[in-house]
């Protein structure tokens, strides 16, 4: 994945709570076997509605999504992250997130910014007042800003997620540095394997 240091762009306020991953990308999109193209399915149940905020001309091209509490709960589908990123979002700001969604996001380089509800409300207002305002998410200094107004807040990221985002590190490569520890562990593990349980065609004896 690409290193992420400072993200700058316009933001769009979703103003909905409990947006679960079924809403982010409905299940019929899960049938694909590719990794790309999911942006067209993003929020697709709502996209037909002309009043839906992503259809609002003033927010076209926004790359930062502001959402309500418990964003990304529900099904573990990583496609939700692919859909947000494929659509063009690089960060999501909300008061809280689903655990698996947050985890999936950090692996793909989608920046998760958790702020208290009142800060999210303030930011939402700043953006609604003037949708062309630039919003800056600074992963290096863990800060969100609206430079034009001087509004600025800090956020938390666990140090590892921050490092990975800054360096663009891929998970598997990181773990493979511990190859000898894994091999050592395997030598002592007594957890049964599937060896001998099934024949070549998956039948049991």
């Amino acid at each position: 994945m690409k290193p992420v240091r400072i993200l700058e762009g316009h933001a769009v306020p979703l103003e909905r709570s409990d947006v679960d991953t079924d809403q982010i990308i409905p299940s019929d999109w899960l049938k694909r076997v590719e990794r790309t193209g999911f942006g067209r399915g993003l929020f697709s149940e709502w996209r037909d509605d002309p009043t839906f905020v992503l259809n609002d001309q003033s927010y076209v091209g926004a790359s930062i999504l502001i959402a309500g509490p418990r964003f990304g709960t529900g099904s573990s589908r990583e496609h939700a992250v692919w859909a947000l990123m494929d659509y063009g979002f690089v960060a999501v700001i909300a008061p809280s997130f689903g655990d698996i969604f947050r985890n999936n996001s950090s692996k793909q380089g989608l920046v998760i910014v958790q702020l208290p509800q009142e800060d999210v409300d303030q930011l939402t207002q700043l953006v609604k007042d003037e949708p062309t305002r630039l919003v800056v998410v600074d992963v290096e200094h863990l800060r969100v800003e609206v430079p034009e107004t001087g509004w600025q807040r800090s956020f938390d990221l666990d140090p590892m997620t921050r490092e990975r985002l800054l360096n663009g590190w891929d998970d598997i490569g990181l773990t493979m540095r511990r190859e000898s520890a894994i091999t050592r562990y395997e030598a002592t593990s007594h957890a049964p394997t599937l060896a001998g349980v099934f024949d070549e065609d998956g039948h049991t004896g």
């Binding site: 589908r77 496609h79 999936n104 598997i172 894994i182």
Partner: peptide, 16 residues
């Protein structure tokens, strides 16, 4: 787990 974790487990049999 998510799909990139699926890939991680396939490749390493471990998970951070």
């Amino acid at each position: 787990i998510g799909t990139s974790e699926v890939e991680h487990v396939l490749a390493t049999q471990t998970l951070p």
